[in-house]
């Protein structure tokens, strides 16, 4: 499949991204670059200086809402991508309606309890939609333990052991690896399904 065929297949696809931090912003940009037609991005947070060590934002965007700045950044990369922004806190009450029309959903939250809430809500309400979760990407080095595996329709990307803490912060290289691994898994799901 050449680049144009890939873009043709992807332009009608819809990918939901829950969280626009380190995983979500980098994953969204990768999906926009390859031409996934519609991205639904949800986050309620604003950009802080501490985010810039890994998240796809710029110094002059500090203080602005992540969803709106991510839409702006994606627009500068590929203005043909439709970006639907949701400046909301995702909760069990709104998760099903936000992501109901998606082909694939990316779990890009920060905290474990939020990941649990999202995955549980998706498995109850939208169990037919594959989810790509990021689990374990704090620190540096340790390339060889980052992996992908499948648990039913939940795809897990990460090392599954490196939890963030003050001595093991999330940093651009490993977060970027996992975010791009999630985007790569999304592509695999979208393109392979289409080929059948």
């Amino acid at each position: 499949m050449n680049t144009f065929e890939i873009a043709f297949r992807l332009k009608n696809k819809i990918v939901g991204i829950a969280g626009c931090g380190g995983l979500g912003s980098n994953c969204a940009v990768a999906l926009a670059r390859v031409g996934v037609g519609t991205l639904i991005i949800a986050d309620f947070d604003i950009i802080s200086e501490a985010n810039l060590n890994r998240q796809y934002y710029f110094f002059d965007q500090i203080g602005f809402k992540k969803v709106f700045m991510l839409k702006e950044n994606i627009g500068r990369i590929n203005p043909k991508i439709k970006v639907i922004t949701l400046d909301v806190r995702l909760l069990p009450v709104n998760i099903p309606s936000v992501f109901a029309g998606c082909d694939v959903i990316v779990e890009a939250f920060d905290l474990a309890d939020q990941k649990e809430m999202l995955l549980e809500s998706l498995q109850i309400n939208l169990p037919e939609i594959p989810v790509v979760a990021g689990l374990g990407m704090a620190g540096w080095g340790m390339n060889n333990i980052i992996h992908h595996r499948k648990m039913d329709n939940i795809h897990i990307c990460g090392d599954e052991i490196s939890e963030i803490c003050p001595d093991l912060p999330p940093l651009a290289p490993r977060v970027g690896i996992v975010a791009n691994m999630q985007a790569n898994t999304v592509l695999e799901l979208l393109l392979n399904k289409e080929q059948k």
């Binding site: 969280g19 931090g21 380190g22 995983l23 979500g24 890009a108 939250f109 920060d110 905290l111 474990a112 309890d113 990941k115 649990e116 995955l119 549980e120 109850i124 990021g134 689990l135 374990g136 990407m137 704090a138 648990m151 039913d152 939940i154 897990i156 990460g158 599954e160 052991i161 490196s162 939890e163 963030i164 999330p170 977060v175």
Partner: peptide, 25 residues
């Protein structure tokens, strides 16, 4: 669901998956 952990029964031959969620993203 977490609220059903006390009552949900696992029987012979069942396939059980437990995913540990950790913070970071």
């Amino acid at each position: 669901q977490k609220s059903d952990y006390e009552s949900a029964a696992i029987r012979d031959g069942d396939v059980v998956n437990v995913l540990h969620l950790i913070s970071g993203g």
